[in-house]
Each structure stands twice: as structure tokens, then as C-alpha cells.
Design a protein around this nucleic acid. Sequence first.
DNA 1: TTACTAACGTACTAGTTCGTACATTAACGT
DNA 2: ACGTTAATGTACGAACTAGTACGTTAGTAA
Lengths: 220, 220
Amino acid sequence: MQDPAPPAVRGPGRARDAARTRAEIIEVATREFAEQGYTGARVDRIAERTRTTKRMIYYYFGGKEGLYVAVLEHAYAGIRQSERDLDLTGLRPIEAMRRLAELTYDHHVAHPEFIRLVSIENIHRAEHLASSETLRNLNMPVTDLIAGLLADGRADGTVRADADPLDVHMVISAYCVFAVANRHTFDALFGRDLLDPARRGHYRTLVGDLVVRYLTPTGP
Amino acid sequence: MQDPAPPAVRGPGRARDAARTRAEIIEVATREFAEQGYTGARVDRIAERTRTTKRMIYYYFGGKEGLYVAVLEHAYAGIRQSERDLDLTGLRPIEAMRRLAELTYDHHVAHPEFIRLVSIENIHRAEHLASSETLRNLNMPVTDLIAGLLADGRADGTVRADADPLDVHMVISAYCVFAVANRHTFDALFGRDLLDPARRGHYRTLVGDLVVRYLTPTGP
DNA sequence: TTACTAACGTACTAGTTCGTACATTAACGT
DNA sequence: ACGTTAATGTACGAACTAGTACGTTAGTAA
């Protein structure tokens, strides 16, 4: 953003910038794949919307599938980073968990494109995710974060002893992913838009409550 | 199943049975669309796997899109029916809710194909669902069931007063849909198969707990 | 029997879509 | 300057894919 923008032209004479071209292709492809699915996405359409040509997609990514994998890798790198940026300092474990659930909700709502990519990848049984070295080695910092909070909470008795970090993460993900991913069928069937801005607060609070109630130890 | 099976042949001379042909196309198409997505599905492939020809798909359904809508309608008619078959008699409201959550989990796990269709339809922003008269008029009996249970529970003080039926349904759906729909990416990223038979009981119990804890009124 | 029509089959086409062969140019080190 | 190569552009093709024109046959009613 801070570098002097090269002339936004195509054709002979345009300045060469591999990194920029590559990044632009990824950005446009992310939208196309998220909108249309893997099979529905069109290589020609992606090329059209770029300041370069289809030839470059094959030059940099080898083909449609390579481009799709690059898009996935880029997208996952994004959330992993935002998971690292989470700041829950100064909160007691149970309240940190509530906050984590609420922030996760906000993050998912703010990035529907990513959720769509995940849905699409699941339709394809995560075969691209599984075949990418980069993606296989991706660790998700949030699980360690949750594990730490649960351990602290168990130590001071504010969190039930039998709560599993990955289960808790699954519950949070399930709720947040569903609200975004299944928004359309839910709205069509029940007449309620899960992403209606007027209801955001309600649904944010709901997932927080859900998690806190699940984690709170039952009476003596 | 109980009628004498017509000869399983194709070509001139085969017995004619419109209903049977139609049903067979829907069945094969359901698999194809669920496996490949709408765009990835191939009309020719569906025809191949049927005892009839592609011509019949156009004869009965008008085209790929019409067939897809017919598949959706058939699939949704299925769950609506199984929602009607739910039997929760003899249980107190809160325990009936627990049971409902657990049965929903079992049902979703048993019908991954349907969950995939729903995911696919969401990728397409539920435009087919919204454009089908049949599907728009589809009522989902489970929401009334939940509303009744919550009302009963409120009456005898076993369910918190501010619980909304559709929210509760959303929470249950989110959990159950996620376990099936996002199974592959979750497994690839966290190394845990959410549908591992050895963990079914655990995850069934978890969603029951989640709902019960959410619905239980807080302290005195 | 015969006329009629719903049900079915074959062969083809127009358009699309991924991918590539081949040509060209800008940057960079020496 | 100049040669090398990374980066880019153009034009095209082979395969696929939804959809259709046209012909045929089985059941049925009179």
C-alpha cells in the first residue's frame, strides 16, 4: 500500500513485478473460488479481472488446481495470524473464554469469503488441504490458547475438569461457521437472517453464554 | 420394493414405468450432486448410471437445474418426514430437549449426503431453494416441537424464560451440521475425525449437555 | 385392430473451458 | 553495451458439456 503504484496498464511496456502480479492473481482468484466453488470458478474469468493474462496463472501456479491451493494457503495463513493477534490478557479464564467465543464470532462474520472457501474445500473432502505441505504443517494457535485457559480455569476451580480444548474449539467453530455458511438456507427456511446487523449482538452474546455455561462446573 | 421388478434392461423392449424412471434419476442425481456439487455434477454421468438415457432427464426435469431442484425437494421432504416421526413422549421438557439434540445428531451423522446438498445450496446462496414453490412452502415441524417443549419448561420453571425456539434449533443444527459438513477440514487441521465411530457417543452426549446447560435457569 | 400418445432412444451441435505452443520484452548483472 | 533470463502477451486447439432435433416403441382406449 505504501509503495509507489506501478502504472495500472496491461500489454507490452508495463512495469514488471512478479510479487505484485502473483498477489493480484491470488486476490482475484480468492473471490472467484469463494463465489463459484472450485468447479464453478473460471480460469478465464480470473484472468480477465486481473491486470495480467491467463498465461501468468499457468506461469505462476501451474494451473487451476495449483492456483486454488495457493488461495487456500493464503487464506489459512490469514486466520492463523489473526489467531495469534488475539489479546485476552487480564481476563479470568472463564471470561477469557467468553471473549474468545465472541471475538471468533465477529471474525467469522467479518470474513464470509474464508468460510465459503472452507465449505468448498469440505465438499471436495479436503483433498487439496491434505495434499499441501504448507497446509498440513499449519498449526492453529487457538487450540493452544484454549488449552491454556482451560488449564488455568481447572486450577482455580472455575472450569469443569472434563472439558476438552478441541471439543470447545469445535463448539465455537460450529456455531460461528454455521451462522455464516448456512445463512442462506436458514433464512430461506425459517425467515431469519442470521447475519442481520440488528441481531449481531444477540448472537454474539449467545455463543459466549453457550461456552461459559458449558464450561462452568455443576453445583456441589 | 414389493412390486414385481421390471426387467433391469435398457433399450427398445424395456418395460415402461414413468414413476420408476423418474425416481431412479432422482436417486442417482442426488448422489452425483452431493458428491460433485452443482457445477461439478455431470448430466451425462447421471444418465450413464441410470437405466435410462439423458433424454429422459430433459423429458422429466427440463434440464440440469430442474433436476437439481427436484433433488433438493426430495431430500427436504425426507427430513421433514423424519422430524414428524420424532417421538419424545413421556419425557420432561428438559430431557426431551436433550433427546431431541441427540436424535438430531444421530440423524445428521446418518445422512451426510443431505448435509452436503445443504452446503452446496448455501454456496449458491439458496437461490434454488428460494425459487422453488414447493421448498418455500416447506414447514419444518421441529421448530413447533421445540417451541412447545420450551413453553412447557418455562411453565414449570425447568427452562429459562428467555430461550428462543429458533435460536435453540440453530444451536443444535450448527453443532450437528458442523460435525458432518466440516469433518474433512477439521480432521486435516486437527487430526481428529469428528465422525469416528469410537467418539460418536461422546459427541452425542456433548450436544445434549450443551443444550441442557444452555436452557437450564441460572441460580436461585 | 387401430389410432393415439406418453415414454423412450440415438445422434448430433453449439458453445465453453482448461491448457499450451510460440513469440516478445523488460530488467539485471557484468 | 549486451547477453541472459524472468516475466509477459497472443493465438489457438482438443476435449468436454448442456442441450436438442428427430425418430421409435409400448401401452391404452375405442
